[in-house]
């Protein structure tokens, strides 16, 4: 699908709130615009973003065309154990983009 960038620290103390910043390249085409010939441009947005940590949900976001192009999300993971933080974006066409990062908890 597209280019994604996730920023999250690699290590944390148990109980720490770890900030996550997730960016993905996507036009978030609203479905309200028209092209040069006056034809409507079909809607094409990322409709869902999910972040899980050690298999459990951190954030599930249902996005709408009002989310700016190249969607950016900031939220916090509760560091409980060493594990994988996984990110998944799904667009209108059902295309899925995944990223992951390892969080080591001490």
């Amino acid at each position: 699908m597209a280019q994604a960038l996730v920023k999250i620290q690699a290590q944390a103390k148990r109980g720490e709130a770890v900030e996550v910043r997730a960016l993905i390249q996507h036009p978030m085409e609203t479905g309200f615009r028209r092209d040069d010939m006056g034809k409507p441009i079909a809607r094409d947005i990322i409709r869902e973003f999910v972040c899980t940590y050690a298999g459990e949900e951190v954030l599930r976001a249902e996005l709408q065309p009002a989310i700016a192009a190249n969607p950016f999300l900031v939220f916090h993971v509760l560091a409980t154990e060493s594990g994988e933080v996984a990110f998944r974006w799904t667009d209108d066409k059902g295309v899925v983009q995944s990223e992951s990062a390892r969080l080591t908890v001490s």
Partner: peptide, 25 residues
């Protein structure tokens, strides 16, 4: 906006803070 909903954000059991940030139209 042409559609009133901007987004729904569900905070799961591993969310550390009741906080989200994004950029909107």
């Amino acid at each position: 906006n042409p559609l009133p909903v901007v987004g729904h954000f569900h905070l799961g059991p591993r969310a550390a803070k009741a906080e989200i940030a994004t950029r909107i139209r």
